[in-house]
Design a protein around this nucleic acid. Sequence first.
DNA 1: CTAGGATATGAGAACGATAACATGTTATCG
DNA 2: CGATAACATGTTATCGTTCTCATATCCTAG
Lengths: 351, 351
Amino acid sequence: MAITLRDVAARAGVSANTVSRALNKTGYVNRQTQLRIDAAVAELGYVPNAVASSLRSKKTQLFALLLTDITNPFWTTIARGVEDAAMEAGYAVILCNTDEDLAKEARYLDLLLRKRIDGMVIAPTVESTHILQNLERRDVPFVLIDRLVNSVVADSVRGDSKSGAYDMTTHLLSTGYRRIGMLGGPLTISTTEERVAGYTEALADAGIPADSHLVLYGHFTEGWGYQATLELMSRERRPDALFAANNTIALGVLEALRVMGLRVPQDVAVVCFDDTTQFSAGKFLTTAMQPAREIGRVAINLLLDRLADPKRDVQDIVLPTELVIRSSCGCNSAFEIGVAEVTRRSVRPGA
Amino acid sequence: MAITLRDVAARAGVSANTVSRALNKTGYVNRQTQLRIDAAVAELGYVPNAVASSLRSKKTQLFALLLTDITNPFWTTIARGVEDAAMEAGYAVILCNTDEDLAKEARYLDLLLRKRIDGMVIAPTVESTHILQNLERRDVPFVLIDRLVNSVVADSVRGDSKSGAYDMTTHLLSTGYRRIGMLGGPLTISTTEERVAGYTEALADAGIPADSHLVLYGHFTEGWGYQATLELMSRERRPDALFAANNTIALGVLEALRVMGLRVPQDVAVVCFDDTTQFSAGKFLTTAMQPAREIGRVAINLLLDRLADPKRDVQDIVLPTELVIRSSCGCNSAFEIGVAEVTRRSVRPGA
DNA sequence: CTAGGATATGAGAACGATAACATGTTATCG
DNA sequence: CGATAACATGTTATCGTTCTCATATCCTAG
């Protein structure tokens, strides 16, 4: 049915092997022969069969991107970066949303292993260890994004959570807030740990006694953000500012405050990690923005490097965050100069 | 290196063919034999090679999703629906962002044809005709989402743009607005046409003389929304409400109004098509929300149906939109009942 | 002038599965 | 009881490339 390389070979009057060499620019091909082959390809409308090629060469030119939910704009943007960089290198990307569901993860892993993907970019959850071990055993290279995993040594890219949290906290302090509530994510995820560390360090550097009651750990969900806010705000001496460890939590925070009838930032300031992209109509939330697209791009580059040299040293790349100051922090510096937002590059503290 | 089906066959003491039948549940296999094979698979840690399978069976279990930019939450959500439904059916999805760039489209098309994808879900742009013809010629089934294309007859899923626009316009009228500016997308895209039609019909039904000066056509971009707003709002009798044909345009509208020092909704109401997901922190914009996730799911189902029966009649599925009333339209009905938003299912007008 | 490298091409096997076909055994039924 | 269907399995060809190896020509240096 479809035109094969042999058809092209016949038409150009050469062997299949020569056509293969001509198309892949591997090995010698006479100038004239090349032209005849190119002509034959065009005339026949030949499209190489990558499936056959993959079977023989054992390379599929396929990557997978495994994350919990692409609906979160942070991950969307990462996906975009991954896709761009992969495409440039001639790879296609299979998108996988696991929803932190073990069964789904397992199904995907099986699917991807069958498809013999060349590599994977993964945002690991607590449960991912099993997947990562499996990948290691089967020699499928992978890159961790956003988070590290204790037991696994692998290439990784992530935003500088600690610095971002440090800067954000410092910004709140310099605006005048003193009782800053921290709504951390799950303690089991490395980014949570670092964000709380940055927050704590900033308080310490400012000479503010850290009040452990102001830090709650939970989940990266709107629901938990909601609950945690109700709890924090009903304390006897309630916080004057709330720092959500990610954008999803922040949504719950805002909703809870709205229900409680508290205004932002007049009654309480709200800031968070991870941007909500340009689609946060109204440009309201002040955030510690991670360079998501760049994280995605770098992840693919690490993967490509790894494929080129399986023995190279493992790299852990940490990219700087940026403070995007909008109105929810109540510092007004954006409004003073007549724009909706102001950005400030993060500089690593101390270390 | 890797374990093959033949290794499993050897271990189970049967032929390769029997193993194939056992694993794919195709053809008869004795209960005992099946168990021996399952055991061998487990012991050896055998993972079938889908590449080899695809080569022989001519099915790759791969779909592609081609859209302009997944960064737009509307498309993100569609992608999510596509991915979910595909996964359930055992297909993986390759994500492709074209950015309306012809060169990129061409590169992707080539890549996907080589990979012998089983089908494609595509949000066509004006330039896509060439791609669609190519797919048709090569017998790759595809489903159009969100938009139709004149010259192409194919399965399609989309939101009910006309009804959505009709309802939204009616809502604005009933709130008291009389000069509603319409910021359409490109005239070349079917959804623009329908949205303007719904808007026009609503005005007519309300007995409001349509003022053609209040309708502008342009692009689905923030920049154009900005420019168009400046233009509309500097008219002698300026609009009291603005209807953006999609979410991206709306962002430009909001920014322009902010720069002009106009308040929303006090000075001018703003509504738009397509939601900005839950991440529109503050839940501000009133929108005609399309069931994006459902659109994605249905697209995959159409594709599967088409694969099952290539000769079946072409289907064009139109899903209802929903009015999400928040604060930007100034009707306050959400606030009266103490919630951030109120939703109202669209009912098709007349037709 | 000749050995060895660069250039150019081809024959045939191999990648790992499934399709097509063949064959034998066991039930089932009129 | 013989025919036919259901069950069970095996052999061989094939999918469309690329890989390995073989061969031949043409230079160029020593």
